[in-house]
């Protein structure tokens, strides 16, 4: 455990809602990245505007492009950024999910060591393409198992119309996969911040709190 973690937990002993966003930054996202960045910036602003959520929601990011890059857990105020496209990238989604699940487990251990209570983590996957790393199906099976074991709530959002995209994403989350309507990132991120504000202030019924419908930006999770 790093010293900065200790200080972080001492300064802010609130219960945590850990969230990992997996962001596809492969070249096929080139024409969508501006809207994604715009929505993401609204998401961070929304979390910061809520006093409790700003203390409780802890964000980490895994980018999925030219390999996977992990940006560690921190409060929203330290996650202001713009995503850049990896020009040479592909979509190693299996590696991204494996990395996210691993980092979530490490973070939980840190919470436990520091006596911090935590809500069930969120894994939020956004992609417009086909996973193309070798072991992605195993990673998808691990995500389903983690969800079944109530270790994490896994959500997938398909972007665009690539063939087979939704079927592939449903391998990671059979019941919580939605297709983004046009490029409504702003509405999607608004839903995400509202939901995380709700979760961070509520008790759940074992699975999830009652979240709002997603009709502003997708048909439904299924």
């Amino acid at each position: 455990m790093s010293e900065s973690s200790e200080i972080q937990f001492a300064e802010n002993p609130e219960d945590r809602v850990p969230v990992v966003l997996i962001v596809d930054v492969s070249p096929s996202m080139e024409d969508k990245i501006a809207e994604l960045n715009d929505g993401y910036s609204g998401y961070i602003a929304d979390l910061l505007a809520d006093p409790l959520a700003s203390l409780r929601v802890e964000l980490a990011i895994v980018t999925c492009g030219d390999g996977n890059r992990f940006i560690p857990f921190d409060r929203a105020e330290n996650h202001r950024r713009e995503f850049q496209i990896d020009a040479a990238g592909s979509t190693p989604l299996g590696g991204a999910v494996t990395m996210a699940l691993h980092e979530l487990e490490l973070r939980k251990q840190e919470y436990k060591r520091n006596g911090i209570n935590y809500y069930r983590p969120w894994l939020w996957i956004m992609s417009d393409g086909e996973p193309n790393d070798d072991n992605w199906r195993q990673a998808a099976a691990n995500a389903r198992k983690a969800e079944e074991d109530k270790k994490v709530s896994v959500y997938c959002v398909g972007i665009g119309d690539a063939q087979g995209m939704m079927e592939n994403l449903r391998e990671f989350s059979p019941t919580r996969t939605a297709k983004l309507d046009k490029l409504k990132f702003r509405e999607m991120f608004k839903w995400l911040s509202n939901s995380q504000k709700k979760v961070s202030q509520d008790k759940a019924t074992g699975a999830a709190v009652q979240l709002d419908p997603v009709t502003d930006w997708a048909t439904a999770f299924r």
Binding site: D15, Y119, R120, K150, K203, A204, G206
Partner: peptide, 9 residues
């Protein structure tokens, strides 16, 4: 329970 606030209604 592992996670905060997971109660059964």
């Amino acid at each position: 329970t592992e996670h905060v606030g997971e109660v059964t209604w």
